[in-house]
Write a protein that binds this DNA or RNA. Structure first.
Length: 586
DNA sequence: GCCGTTTTCGGCCCGACTGTTTTCAGTCG
């Protein structure tokens, strides 16, 4: 079993235990193990094979290690099957419906033998749910609405799509009477590639007035709940928006809390408890040792920096708040007043980038001419840029053969003469053919300043074969950059199967860079692969793969993603000035 | 079930809103 399958199985155990009303800390132990496994870049089977103790991993103890060993060896987990003998697996899906949790799912099963969403819908429509103890008319209606939404909107929206909705919403909210501050928190602020819902945080002396103004927005289709400090609504687009209001002295604490992630917050709060403190969305409080129940003395919470400082930490950029070691890295040696620095990385910023290394023109499937692309890049202050049209195997994009490529070089020379303000590099996005050879003759490859290679076909090859194919392509001495390596499209196409560990290791040895494609549909490589690339010393480029001038602005999504992978300017090739770049790039 | 610069036992993050079980459990984030 691969890591993803192992994680899924343990997750299922956690869900089933939850329905069984097991010890909540035991359930949490399973979920912690799942997280550890999901973020593990090396296959657990390989660790086991090498005789490495799994218990060295955080959250993996004797029991989990033995579960994992069993799964690796037999491909299944007896304990999970045992639990499934007591209740159907489909109860887990019930539990995912809004207003249905583990307790209610169990009750539905015990009382009415309901185990699927379909059964539940039929029972609710027949009015049989309202009669179950603990349920009522309102819950029955909520369940029906929840089933509807569940079917309508099960996938998370792309960050870029959500931005289109959030911006006007913010503009509206800024007109609220008495509003002092407003921020988007949640996974949007952490710049995750997809967003499940929007968390808004407002500061106001009279929060009720802000809530009222918010609820008057025309896009709101349904109000899920509303109180003086919280409101939750569903927009016509299906997106859920939560607004919370806090007093000014709680702004920082609330922003930390609502930005998350949940795991980051848990660790932060645990750190507070170890220091006799308590962190909530209202602030950091000193716990009274004689009366742990009392509210305690408020000591911080106005700004995020104050909250982190109260537990001896430097402020952590939101993109890093995933409990991936950022809390440990943010420790300020000697405490907050020691004047020492934390080990947090200096994350890449868009201003660090000196050029865009992947874009198309009307020579293949781009919408703008070379000169228009050049002017647009120059307007963005870039020192250099790359023209990289498709190769002939991608006929549908009007890919170039050797003859047309030579013709293109003539045009590039002319544009170069007219635009001395920017360096224009000759390139091509060359298809990796099925056998790993490249879709352009060697002498033409040698005439390019930069050679990009990409997978655009045969995404379905088995892992071993796909890995071989890619390795062969990487070995070609002219290759500079491996673009959108997994070829995934978020919510639409899963990436190819290949052994990323092997591929990135070889790329690092050969000096081939890997692309972080900034297109919000791609964001390929993904965060965990980028972290692996960094660990292996493999260079990364952040490019837009633009097919029209305005797509050059997609670069910021790539930067967001790089920041989530802890990348610093030194990890990124296109932070280098032109002279250094041409020396470094293969 | 996991973990340990106060611990190998006794802890393990915090609060708002809703609906229903009239005093609070369940859900959610």
């Amino acid at each position: 079993m691969d890591n993803a399958a192992i994680a899924r199985t343990l997750e299922e155990v956690a869900d089933l235990l939850e329905i069984q009303n097991a010890n909540p800390f035991r359930i949490r132990a399973y979920r912690n193990a799942v997280r550890t496994i999901q973020t593990q870049t090396t296959p657990l089977a390989r660790l086991l094979g090498a005789g490495r103790p799994l218990t060295a991993l955080p959250g993996i103890g004797k029991e989990m290690a033995s579960h994992i060993k069993e799964m690796v060896e037999t491909g299944t987990l007896g304990y999970r099957d045992e639990l499934l003998g007591e209740m159907p697996r489909s109860l887990i899906e019930l539990m995912r419906l809004p207003s249905v949790g583990p307790k209610k799912a169990k009750k539905l099963w015990d009382e009415l033998q309901i185990s699927t969403v379909e059964d539940l819908e039929a029972a609710a429509k027949a009015g049989r749910i309202a009669g179950v103890p603990g349920f009522g008319e309102k819950t029955q209606q909520k369940i029906l609405a929840g089933i509807h939404d569940h079917r309508q909107h099960s996938s998370r929206m792309l960050l870029a799509d959500v931005e289109q909705i959030v911006d006007p919403l913010l503009e509206w909210l800024r007109q609220s009477p008495g509003l002092e501050r407003l921020e988007v928190a949640g996974s949007y602020r952490r710049r995750r590639e997809t967003v499940g819902d929007i968390d808004l945080l407002a500061v106001a002396k009279k929060p009720a007035a802000v809530m009222k103004h918010f609820l008057g927005h025309a896009w709101i289709e349904k109000v899920e709940m509303s109180g003086d400090t919280r409101a939750s609504v569903i927009l016509g687009s299906g997106l859920q928006v939560d607004l919370r209001a806090v007093p000014p002295e709680s702004y920082g604490a609330a922003l930390v809390y609502f930005t998350g992630s949940k795991e980051h917050n848990v660790k932060l709060r645990r750190r507070a408890v170890e220091r006799g403190l308590r962190i909530s969305e209202y602030g950091v409080f000193k716990v009274d040792p004689d009366d742990a129940e009392a509210e305690g003395e408020w000591i911080a919470g106005r700004e995020e920096e104050d909250v982190y400082a109260a537990v001896g930490l430097a402020w952590i950029p939101p993109e890093m708040r995933e409990d991936q070691g950022e809390i440990e890295a943010s420790v300020i040696p000697g405490g907050k007043s020691a004047g020492k620095k934390s080990r947090l990385p200096r994350l890449i910023e868009q201003e660090d980038l000196k050029g865009d290394l992947h874009m198309h023109s009307t020579w293949s499937d781009g919408r703008n001419s070379i000169e228009e692309m050049v002017e647009a890049c120059a307007a963005r202050g870039y020192e250099y840029m790359v023209i990289s049209d498709h190769s002939k195997a991608l006929a549908m994009t009007n890919g170039l053969d050797a003859y047309r490529l030579r013709e293109q070089w003539k045009e590039i020379d002319e544009v170069r003469a007219r635009h001395p303000e920017i360096r224009i590099l000759r390139s091509m996005e060359v298809d990796i053919l099925a056998d790993g050879s490249l879709d352009l003759e060697d002498e033409m490859l040698a005439g390019l300043d930069v050679v990009l290679i990409s997978l655009h076909s045969r995404f379905d090859l088995p892992e071993a074969q796909q890995t071989e194919r890619v390795l062969r392509a990487l070995e070609h001495p002219e290759v500079s950059i491996f673009c959108h390596p997994t070829a995934r499209l978020i919510n639409r196409r899963r990436g190819v199967e290949m052994d990323m560990d092997v591929v990135l290791r070889r790329a690092a040895e050969l000096g081939v860079a890997v692309e972080l494609n900034s297109n919000p549909h791609r964001l390929d490589l993904r965060d965990s692969h980028l972290r692996l690339a960094r660990e292996l010393g493999c260079k990364v480029v952040i490019s837009t793969d633009s097919h029209r001038t305005r797509e050059l602005d997609l670069m910021r999504y790539g930067v967001d993603q790089a920041r989530r992978a802890w990348l610093e300017p030194g990890n990124i090739l296109n932070t280098l000035p032109y002279k250094e770049l041409v020396k470094t790039i293969r």
